[in-house]
């Protein structure tokens, strides 16, 4: 059974619907990443789960029981704020001890738990420091330690890495991942960064336009984005529309020619239907032979080196497609590219 169930949550913000019926669940020990653009309502959803805001409609269940009427301070959930919200009038260990004190623990019980939490985030040496003297990364760790110290039943993290620079973000991303698995506390992790979501999440849920567009394992979401909006959100822009000309295997006639897909999870696709296809950037290569499917002809408009590969932009009949290729192409050159049938994905329209 799921530990947390979010059922049909609706929320209006300044008269406009922000959440239009969110359904999600978190299993025990699982990290769920909520991915969405800013303004998609993901932070609001987190605040509703935390009890800081109330939903207009819908229910929250914890182990099957509704917690909607349980006030924030009795929910025993941990929430880590985007800007950490450390108490400026308390030092590091007082900040970490706060939740334990609220739980009614005695001083002697609190001290070892504070140390434990600080050790978990490698900040033991900072126990007596003022939080106002800490760097962004250090504050981030203290905020995490503070949220973890009372052993919350659920940990929520609201863009915990957004305020940090890229190098630090990558470092802490790995650390967080290890920590979340070590503690085994179920977690909801909110981010707008797909890479972060894929690294940290056991499951990823994409929030768009007030609804959960798609949820699943990071691989599944990446390989089979459900529709145009999910694909575009994940930065996949090679989209093309066409008419189904065959179903076994699925073949679609597009402006690029006929594309064959072995990656269609949609049932009841019929000949003559309009079908949206995504051509994934990976697995593309310049063919050495003249035969095979999914040959795409185009003029190179851009080509730059990215480290592992080259990013090539092709103009194919005024549709611009991006591919990763292993070799450099000249801008203006007309080339043919071939993608495997498994890299052509059907999307819902």
């Amino acid at each position: 059974m799921s530990q947390l169930e979010i059922i049909n949550i609706h929320k209006n913000y300044e008269g406009k619907p922000l959440l239009k019926g969110i359904n999600l669940s978190v299993e025990s020990g699982e990290t769920l990443c909520l991915l969405g653009r800013s303004g998609s309502g993901k932070s609001t959803l987190l605040r509703i789960v935390a009890g800081l805001e109330s939903a207009d409609r819908g229910d929250l269940l914890w182990n099957g029981e509704s917690i909607c009427d349980v006030p924030t301070w009795q929910r025993q959930f941990g929430l880590m704020f985007q800007d950490y919200a450390l108490f400026p009038h308390m030092n590091v260990s007082e900040n970490v001890a706060f939740g334990l004190r609220m739980a009614g623990m005695k001083k002697v019980e609190i001290a070892p738990l504070v140390n434990e939490a600080l050790e978990l985030v490698n900040m033991s040496a900072f126990a007596k420091r003022q939080v106002t003297d800490l760097s962004g990364g250090e504050q981030q760790r203290i905020a995490l330690a503070r949220a973890l110290a009372p052993h919350p039943r659920l940990l929520m993290l609201d863009e915990p890495l957004a305020a940090l620079d890229r190098a630090l973000r990558l470092e802490l991303q790995d650390e967080l991942r290890g920590l979340l698995h070590k503690t085994g506390i179920p977690a909801i992790y909110v981010t707008h960064d797909q890479e972060e979501a894929f690294v940290l999440g056991d499951r990823v849920a994409i929030l768009s336009d007030g609804l959960v567009e798609q949820s699943g394992s990071p691989e599944a979401v990446y390989k089979f984005p459900k529709n145009r909006s999910v694909a575009e959100f994940l930065g996949m822009t090679n989209l093309v529309d066409g008419k189904v000309v065959a179903t076994e295997p699925l073949q679609v006639e597009t402006a690029l020619g006929i594309l064959t897909s072995s990656n269609c999870r949609m049932s009841n696709v019929k000949i003559g239907d309009q079908q949206l296809l995504l051509v994934q950037t990976t697995g593309a290569e310049r063919p050495t032979t003249q035969d095979g499917s999914n040959r795409i002809l185009g003029i190179v408009t851009e080509c730059f080196f990215r480290g592992d590969d080259f990013k090539v932009t092709l103009n194919c009949c005024e549709l611009f497609f991006e591919f990763s290729l292993s070799e450099r192409c000249e801008v203006g050159q007309s080339i043919t590219i071939q993608v495997p049938d498994s890299s052509v994905v059907c999307l819902e329209t």
Partner: peptide, 26 residues
Amino acid sequence: DPRIEEAGRVLGGSPWRVFREVTLPL
């Protein structure tokens, strides 16, 4: 910052305790 009070509530502080231990000292 209202988030500082909210952090206090999430950590288990009742409104009165958060007022006394977070808002008032600040």
